[in-house]
Design a protein around this nucleic acid. Structure first.
Lengths: 351, 351
DNA sequence: AAGATTTCCTTTAACGGTAAAGGTATAATT
DNA sequence: AATTATACCTTTACCGTTAAAGGAAATCTT
């Protein structure tokens, strides 16, 4: 691997001059020298050593995507369709901007901080992080941060400086809409399936309860279906969820992945979807359009989420003033086949 | 961010001594000094600057996963279920070994080489690369390489040195089995759907033709369904494939992703799967078990592929002699619901 | 024509870390 | 007691790149 120093020696000039040509600092170098260096450069296919460059400039041109994940999650986080679609969006934007993307996966916040510091990432994209964890990271690693799918309260939001954006959905509102959609279809006993009630899912749960309340349905604790999403327990837990949903007519799931998995388990246990149980999700991943019945869900674009988070982060890195720090992406209810209209039956019976 | 030099100054000792403690070179440092340094280190939460370390040691502890992809591919490569499952496998192994994973996506081999050189990756995992491209990369970047899903002929295999492994499937054999499975179910007009006939897919095509030949069925050029897998053309092309398959009873697809997409398009056009058309794929991704009808396919584990590639590469990096350079992973035909048994009909008719 | 400015180049030092070589006591050997 | 070895520490130099400062010649001011 040829270095700037070697080139400089070969051409009888200083390393700085070569470096200046490489960086297009034309005012510092005569046209003649520029030509000479460029000719030589194209000859030897010089590639800069990024470690040396980063060290000298105290930057890295690297964006770190942080995925906080339980060690024993039932599926590798990179294989999760929503995550991989989002990563695709990030990667595209980051690459186009001449930056590099590094993925940082860990359960442990300190480990995450260490990795991020080690590589001296210029900016972070935090996915599904709890707000206090995000704050902890930011307080320690004072670089721009874009949060994706993190619920950040207004007070906490103030604690983040200007080098921060939060990209998300109207989690409460969208789920409220979705649950009202179910209610409008005649459902009254509606389950809420999730694997945690933190961050974004807390907001979704709030939306669920608000919908019930506004439609005059009493909330029952037994309608909260807490899925054990570990490698060991996932199937057993899914089975349990089906049993627990025995007296429900519909279940809203906190992701399409869970929704399709629940559907699969229900079918395996001999249930008919949506006749025996209606299922709804969020995300609108590829699977949702392919499974049978096709999933009725809250549509959002994982790719756009990633793209926008990356774009905003890069804008901050380029010194642009990002005016809106809370970015709410659009959503829409996509009616497909996994929800049964109970009213039809009623009206049919009436006839 | 605190540096070794600062720590050394604070403790009135040389940077080398601190460095030695960090690296556990106990023979060089007195027990007393070790304690003193360690106490201080845990106090200040020192994190090494990896750029500096890499520069000094001429290494990077980084594995680069190279994905060569057409710019206008219909779907981002990271969202591709097979790829993301494989990446999950790689990431797990790489992280456990204390290495870092970087993803390098490009259409252009020179760009790939540049990126890999820039970061000084210790080793490469090349996915679905053509053998001459892989060779070109290796000739330029003389570091260990693990190929995944690359067909490498015996002659070319010799050109790679010892720092090389190739992890794959018995592509020809497995597809041959699959097509024979179709034939055994009474199918005679069998399509072969792919988006290219290079590398691994060339082998699969070979398997397809061998199956036909061995079962005494004449190959017809019109049974080769070449899918245009660009963003712009994918849907139109899928539709065209359905039209072209009009006179076929079954189509073998070079991936489950394509198989499920073809199935979706067929259904959209009013066809019944498998009654009107049987479909088979390779990969056995998550979707294949969820779609309807469930996909009959060649099962393989993307995660294992990634894991084994990473393990072997790390073994090479650690100086272990990897005896087998060609690793063929197991596969199996998974019978599900997307293939119709035509013989049943025949026998029924006979009755 | 003296001073100021511009042009184009080089020298030096630094980024943070590590390897290699160089010391200086102290202990072990003969 | 001289020699050798050992333990422990420091000094120096370097990895490849870049920023800052320095300098000499040419050009522009007034």
């Amino acid at each position: 691997m040829i270095t700037i120093k070697q080139i400089a020696k070969e051409l009888n000039m200083s390393a700085t001059t070569v470096s200046n040509v490489i960086h297009g600092k034309t005012k510092e170098v005569s046209q003649e020298t520029i030509e000479r260096v460029k000719a030589y450069l194209s000859d030897v296919e010089y590639v800069p050593n990024i470690n040396a460059r980063n060290l000298a400039q105290n930057q890295s041109k690297m964006i770190c995507v942080v995925l906080r994940v339980r060690e024993d999650r039932f599926m590798h986080i990179l294989s999760d369709p929503f995550v991989s679609e989002m990563l695709g969006g990030i990667e595209e934007v980051v690459r186009a901007a001449g930056y590099y993307m590094m993925i940082c996966i860990s359960e442990d916040i300190s480990e995450i901080i260490t990795k991020v510091e080690t590589w001296n990432a210029d900016g972070l994209i935090l996915f599904c992080m709890l707000d206090d964890d995000a704050l902890r990271i930011q307080r320690r690693y004072r670089k721009p941060i874009a949060c994706v799918d993190a619920y950040v309260s207004d007070e906490v939001d103030e604690s983040f400086g200007n080098d921060y954006v939060n990209v998300g959905l109207d989690d409460e509102g969208s789920v409220c809409e979705a649950v009202k959609y179910l209610i409008n279809k005649g459902h009254k006993k509606i389950g809420f399936l999730t694997d945690n009630i933190e961050g974004v899912n807390a907001m979704r749960f709030k939306g669920y309860r608000r919908a019930l309340k506004e439609e005059g349905i009493k909330y029952s604790r037994s309608n909260l279906l807490m899925l054990e999403s570990t490698k060991r327990d996932i199937n057993r837990s899914l089975e349990k969820m089906i049993r627990l949903s025995e007296n429900m007519t519909a279940v809203f799931c906190c992701s399409d992945l869970y929704a399709t998995m629940l559907m699969g388990m229900a079918q395996k246990l001999g249930k008919n979807i949506p006749d025996d149980l209606s299922i709804m999700g969020v995300d609108d991943i590829l699977i949702s359009r392919i499974c049978t019945p096709k999933l009725t869900t809250i549509h959002q674009s994982a790719e756009d989420k990633g793209k926008i988070a990356a774009e905003k982060l890069l804008a901050i890195l380029k010194g642009k003033d990002v005016e809106e720090r809370q970015i709410i992406l659009p959503h829409s209810i996509v009616e497909r086949e996994s929800v049964k209209d109970l009213r039809e039956i009623v009206s049919l019976k009436a006839v």
